Computed example of a mutant assay.
Amino acid sequence: MTHPAAAPTRPEAPRDAAAPLLDVRHLSLDFTSPRGRIHALRDISMTVPRGRIVGVVGESGSGKSTLAYAVIRLLAENARVVGGEIVMDGRDLLTLSPREMRGIRGRRMSMIFQDPMTSLNRVMSIGQQMIDIQYRDPISKAEKRKRAVEALRRVGIPDPEDRVNGYPHQFSGGMRQRICIAMAMMVEPALLLADEPTTALDATTEVQIIGLLERLQAEIGCSILFVSHHLGTVAELCHDVVVLYAGEVVEQGSVRDIFHNPGHPYTQALLDCDPGRIKEKTRRLPTIPGVVPSLVGDQVPTGCIFKTRCPHAFDRCDHEVPPSYAVVSGEVAPDAPHTARCHLRDAAEERRP
């Protein structure tokens, strides 16, 4: 697997900046709790261009999975979208009725969930589950079964004609994840959401699953929003990266830009914590000092969200929320390909004596 320190080998896909498949605009989302509102996502803006794979990275609790579930609108009952838009194919998904949203899921959009051990119904055969998800298609059950077999063959399940009759407990974790991928890709969606699909798998199986996703994406030409905490996986698979910290986007850009020229101290800290970058033997793995700030009620810090853990914080970080700066020019440029929300990127700061 490509190491983050090495040059990403993923070939570039065409970028159509004028018409992204998915455009998340200033999305803010809260969860209600006995302690008060938890401001899980705040002013999230990012795009998924057509035909490209966008990785979303960050520590646990940064809002990665919440963002994916907000896009597909499978949020918990205590979730409340308090602002923003999620635009796909020119329509704001947040304004659609439940029936209209069901018409998009399983056709234009599908999802691979994090845990293959619990994503499948344990008391139904794999074939029956794959037939059931084709309920919209006016074809015979035999044709639907044939499609299921071909989908299993496509993801490398051996003897798919026989294994389609099997039950989830008869498959390994890696095989179950292949089945979940087959079900998600069977409709050839325009957008695939992958919520840490390799977390529960061993390293060898992880490499196989990443290779499978890469091949299927190239065949179908879909876009993928890939949620992961594994930087090496992101470097191997993705074209672009969005870095989340405590519910905010702190940096975004191409894989090459992010891994070779990180513009935010948090991104640099994540890269420094990668064990593969350790050049000398040590008994202690690198960590990011401090803790993630509370996002409950009015406890969200003012100014820069990363200031309490940042070794470069200064007075301006305490009271002023940093805008998105173009990493190269240092000018405010929210739509630039590589941006970071850090006052250190401000060209005016660099010119100060």
Rank of each mutant, 00 (worst) to 15 (best):
F226W: 05
L67F: 00
L41D: 01
N165D: 15
P275L: 04
V241Q: 00
S110V: 06
H343K: 05
I288M: 00
D240C: 07
D132E: 15
L93I: 06
I181S: 03
A200C: 11
A190Q: 15
A5N: 12
D257Q: 13
C304H: 14
A17F: 09
D132S: 05
V249C: 00
R25A: 00
V292Y: 09
T287K: 12
T287A: 07
E150V: 14
P334V: 02
T32I: 03
A326R: 13
L67G: 01
A68T: 15
K144E: 08
I112N: 11
K146N: 10
T95L: 14
C342R: 00
E77M: 06
D159S: 15
P289Q: 11
D202L: 06
V164F: 01
R107I: 12
G63I: 03
E100T: 12
L193T: 07
P289K: 08
Q217I: 08
D137T: 01
F113D: 01
V328Y: 15
D335W: 05
A200E: 06
I133D: 07
M88F: 06
T205E: 02
P98G: 14
Q134C: 10
G36D: 06
G63T: 06
E280A: 13
A348G: 00
I224T: 13
I305F: 08
G232Y: 01
G83A: 08
E236L: 10
V187S: 11
R25Y: 01
V227H: 14
I131T: 12
A40L: 02
P14F: 04
R163K: 15
R35D: 15
G61N: 13
Y135L: 01
F259A: 00
K307T: 15
L193S: 09
L21A: 08
R122F: 10
V241M: 02
H239W: 07
A17H: 12
K307P: 15
R178I: 04
G232D: 03
P11S: 12
R352V: 12
K146Y: 10
M88Q: 11
R122H: 13
